[in-house]
Write a protein that binds this DNA or RNA. Structure first.
Lengths: 155, 155
DNA sequence: TATTGTTATACTCTATAACTATA
DNA sequence: TATAGTTATAGAGTATAACAATA
């Protein structure tokens, strides 16, 4: 017969990271489906969120905040600009730097996207008690804080 | 001056899905770095986990469990086989079907990878109280259960 | 020289759809 | 015809590294 493995299966499934990834993948995937109709991807939405509520941001700044490289932001921003959702302007004071900002069109679109995000959250998490929901939110935010954003790639 | 947006930033950041994705991305990324040294990717590890503790599984079965398409499993399995970590055998009873199984080498490797997973979990979640940790685990597993795996693609 | 971005390249992950083999 | 898998193709999402412009 088959030998009992040296490590139990239950041990294997106990990793928080595993479940996090599993659930997150499903949630993101479902959200992507919803965003599709609006011609926006999840990564683009994430960038739009960063640009929202602020006058303008440097690509490097967003890169650090989102934990992406500058190159990745360039490409994401390119796509938003192509879609008329963002603008890129060279800084006057220091012409090496740039500023990313949302267009009026993007600002009009965001509430719609936020509704989709609400719907998606509800679809997956509406069964949670208020307490569980709060714990999740708190734990996730704490983790971000405790871990910091220092994991950001350098180049 | 800038008008106050119709939707507040705090509202935007309140989506559980957002934080889930944010944290999960960081956790997975860090884990990928750790797995790199062992020549395994996170997706490959996920498949290995599914094959672990069972004698053999059909590609379709794993696909459903992981929420991936059969095509995706084919490619993942190809890579594991290439690395000598899995085998693919045609079923005797019904030659349309196949069985995926781990090799002895994979079974030896898994405890090592599990240690890395432990380390990764610790790196991100060691600050959690036991209660928070349990809540997270319970909520994530419940979500999987409640939502079911029906979101699985068809083709 | 250091900093900010861009570009070229490449790889993972995954889907969709067409195709093959078996039933 | 239905089912199980494979393959070809494509696109998102990123990274790395070389490069250009500016300071």
């Amino acid at each position: 017969m088959t030998r009992t493995p040296a490590i139990s299966v239950s041990h294997l499934t106990a990793h928080l990271g595993y479940w996090l990834r599993y659930v997150s993948n499903h949630v993101s995937h479902a959200f992507a489906r919803k965003l599709e109709a609006q011609g926006v991807t999840v990564a683009e939405w994430a960038l739009m969120r960063e640009l929202f509520g602020v006058t303008s941001v440097s690509p490097s700044g967003v890169a650090e905040k989102l934990g992406l490289t500058r190159g990745a932001i360039t490409k994401l921003a390119d796509r938003l600009i192509e879609k008329g959702l963002a603008t890129r302007t060279r800084n006057v004071k220091d012409a090496r730097g740039q500023s990313l900002a949302l267009t009026a069109s993007a600002r009009r679109l965001i509430p719609k996207l936020a509704v989709l995000a609400d719907q998606n959250d509800a679809e997956f998490f509406s069964h949670l008690s208020l307490e569980d929901r709060r714990t999740m939110e708190r734990v996730l935010k704490e983790t971000v804080k405790v871990r910091g954003l220092k994991s950001t790639p350098v180049s």
